[in-house]
Amino acid sequence: MIVSANQLVAGCIVTADVIGKSGMPLVKSKTVLTDTEIFYLQKMLVKEVTVAGHLEDGSSFVPEKDSVSVRPAIIQVHFLDAYAAAAEGYQKQFNAWQHGSTVDIAVLRKHILPVLEKVSEWEGNVFNLPAYRRQIDYLPEHAAGTAALVAAVLQKAGFSEADIKQIGLAAYLADCGMAKLKQPYHIQKRRLHDSEWEDVQKHPTFSYRMVEQAPLLSSKAKLAILQHHERADGAGYPLRLPKEKIHSFASLLSICDTYHALISERAYRAAVSPYEAVDIILEEQFRRFDPAMIQHFIQAFVDAQQNTKVRLSSGDIAEVVFTDTNHPTRPMVREQESGQVKALTEIPHIRIEQIIYEAR
């Protein structure tokens, strides 16, 4: 039967490919729809979908009367649910790439677009994502997390919706070339040997080749994928480009990639705190990153920490009340117990050790 996208419910079985304006399938036949996929179809302004007369559980599907408005249950898809679906979807695609499958941009857009669109609405702290979700496998979490960070920074900086979606998708795809390496280095529980590291440095080239002919990905998104490990000092890879040859979006992707990697637990090292990760990035900024993109990243980070509870190295719990972007890791804080406001710029021996997780 043919129904409106607004009539779909979780468990509906698609019986004909849903084709987007580009002529590429948004959802393929035989897909069992989830709330996230329905939300995606509605956001893509799909009018009609052909589905089976029964749901996945075997019960009959009787569509409700169509409504112009989007169903409230679909609007309420939570950011963290969309994020989890994006990580899980990436893992499935990565497994397929390892066995020779090509990159299906339409499927990947379906997984990551809800994350890119909902990150600005979420009341949680996108710069502390590992605190909200237990990491199962690093690479899919890293792909979804880096994409969310890129979107948050670009939204805060006022970039266009098209750029946010394209560069967010580029961040999601940047490491797809890891599937083509000699060994599954991403699951190693030790630091890599020199020969292994040389092989890993090929992954941006493989990633670029995997998406080079994809019509749904812009040229600047493809360039960001190829260049996301290049450095301003020319010591990056795979091409060792000078800073004037590196696209600014590639540099932003590199910043977010580095940050998310630092705050993530790895088998061979512990995660660092968000504030320590920012300190590390600032120490490297002139050697590695585009100054304008560093400023955009820092502004987004600072804004996200306003009124956040933190644990200080003194053991005190405090709330961030003001941050000067020139000193993003040394804000003014109000101690919870004493009520005193302290400027960490004036107390060099005290630092922020942890952002305190608050469920959202």
Rank of each mutant, 00 (worst) to 15 (best):
K342T: 12
T308P: 05
K92Y: 03
K156F: 04
V333S: 12
Y40G: 02
S120K: 13
S69T: 00
K118G: 00
S69C: 07
V68W: 14
I112F: 09
I280H: 03
L312F: 06
Y357P: 00
P130G: 15
D316M: 08
T205N: 08
P274V: 12
E346Q: 13
G58I: 01
D35G: 01
S101T: 01
A214I: 05
R288Y: 10
V14N: 04
Y237A: 15
T146V: 10
A359R: 09
P348W: 15
E353T: 09
T102Y: 08
D194T: 04
G53H: 02
Q213D: 10
V32S: 08
Q201G: 09
Q188E: 08
M332S: 14
W97H: 10
I74A: 06
E196S: 11
R311N: 14
K309M: 08
P184N: 13
H142L: 10
L116Y: 05
D137F: 15
E276G: 12
M293G: 01
E88S: 14
K180M: 11
A221T: 03
K47W: 00
S251A: 08
L282P: 03
K110Q: 13
A87N: 06
Q188C: 15
F249Y: 13
T15S: 01
V272A: 15
V51W: 00
A82C: 10
Y132S: 15
A85M: 10
H142E: 03
L192I: 09
H78A: 14
V200C: 07
E265P: 00
D199W: 13
L139I: 12
M44K: 13
A250M: 05
V70C: 11
V321Y: 08
Q98N: 13
K180E: 01
E161D: 10
F289D: 06
D175T: 11
L226K: 15
Q295T: 07
A5M: 05
M178H: 15
F301G: 04
G145A: 15
R269Y: 07
M293T: 03
D17L: 07
D316Y: 08
E335D: 09
S338K: 11
S264C: 11
H193W: 10
R330P: 03
Y132E: 11
A87C: 11
R240N: 11
N95W: 02
L55C: 01
D279K: 10
Q336I: 12
R209F: 09
L26E: 06
I317E: 10
A304C: 11
K182F: 05
A52L: 02
G53D: 08
A106K: 03
N307P: 03
H327D: 07
E37N: 07
S160Q: 00
V103Q: 05
I280F: 01
H247S: 15
K21D: 05
V14D: 05
L33E: 12
V49D: 00
A82I: 01
V321A: 13
L108T: 04
I105S: 15
F206C: 06
V27F: 03
A300N: 04
P63M: 12
I167D: 01
M293K: 12
R190P: 02
E123I: 01
V150R: 11
L253V: 03
T329P: 04
P204H: 09
L41Q: 06
K65E: 13
Y132Q: 12
V77D: 04
G315E: 05
Q91R: 15
H228D: 08
W122D: 04
I167G: 02
I347D: 05
F94Y: 12
A148I: 00
A359K: 12
E337V: 14
P215S: 14
